[in-house]
């Protein structure tokens, strides 16, 4: 199996890990967003709480969670490793700057990754931990955990809303480059399809993080 290890530890192999996990996480965002849209149902959180409740206890969901967490973990660890070895490849930096034209966001994928990781941890502690592990939420009219009330409460703080909006902008820039970059890493570059891939990536990077950012803004301005 040394060929397998050689492949995944090579420069291209490490990019493949970034691309596979990255696309997986991009897919997860959409699933997460669709669930979150229940927050906007306007029924005082009944349907959102039911949705959140259905995410508990099922082995299918548990497997999904393990896969998603592994995706995050591999993406972050591999990303840190790549940043370190890429820095090592240029030990002395240029005095006259680096002025080459590059694609949007591509030069700051690492710093954006740090912002997103910090947000991810904060988000897990505030919502995932409270709902799934601590399980200390109050009950709603249907006698199930009232995650909706927690969401409403959290999004009353302007600083908290600002952190969410800024983080979603960071995710948008990260995805705009990451989506099309993943296809390039797979070797899928074609005159016909690359412009389509880039368009889909940019549209996704605007719409999905945009919709996520809309939720805290909605609760801040309406509740």
């Amino acid at each position: 199996m040394s060929w397998f290890k050689d492949t995944l530890t090579s420069s291209i192999g490490r990019k493949l890990i970034m691309a596979i996990t990255g696309l997986g996480l991009i897919g997860f965002l959409l699933v997460h967003l669709i669930g979150n849209l229940a927050l906007l149902a306007g029924d005082g959180g009944i349907s959102f709480n039911e949705y959140a409740h259905s995410m508990k206890g099922s082995p299918v969901i548990l497997i999904g969670e393990v896969v998603i967490f592994s995706g995050f973990l591999f993406h972050i660890i591999d990303g840190i490793g790549l940043v370190i070895s890429n820095k090592k490849a240029r030990p002395v930096s240029y005095g006259g700057g680096a002025n080459a034209k590059t694609s949007t966001g591509s030069k700051i994928m690492g710093p954006l990754g740090i912002v997103i990781t910090v947000f991810f941890i904060l988000h897990l502690v505030d919502f995932f931990y409270r709902a799934k592990i601590a399980d200390d939420l109050g009950l709603d009219a249907n006698n199930i955990a009232d995650l909706y009330a927690l969401v409403v409460e959290k999004f009353q703080s302007p600083a908290y809303v600002a952190i969410y909006v800024v983080s979603m902008i960071a995710i948008g820039i990260h995805l705009n480059h990451g989506f099309q970059s993943a296809f390039q890493t797979f070797g899928l570059n074609h005159l016909k399809y690359t412009p389509i891939i880039k368009f889909i990536g940019t549209a996704y990077a605007v719409v999905v993080p945009g919709a996520f950012a809309f939720i805290p803004l909605f609760f801040y301005f309406t509740k």
Binding site: K15, K88, Q180, T185
Partner: peptide, 10 residues
């Protein structure tokens, strides 16, 4: 010891 590609296009 060359680095990996970030697809910046530089």
């Amino acid at each position: 010891g060359f680095g990996a590609c970030t697809n910046t296009g530089a």
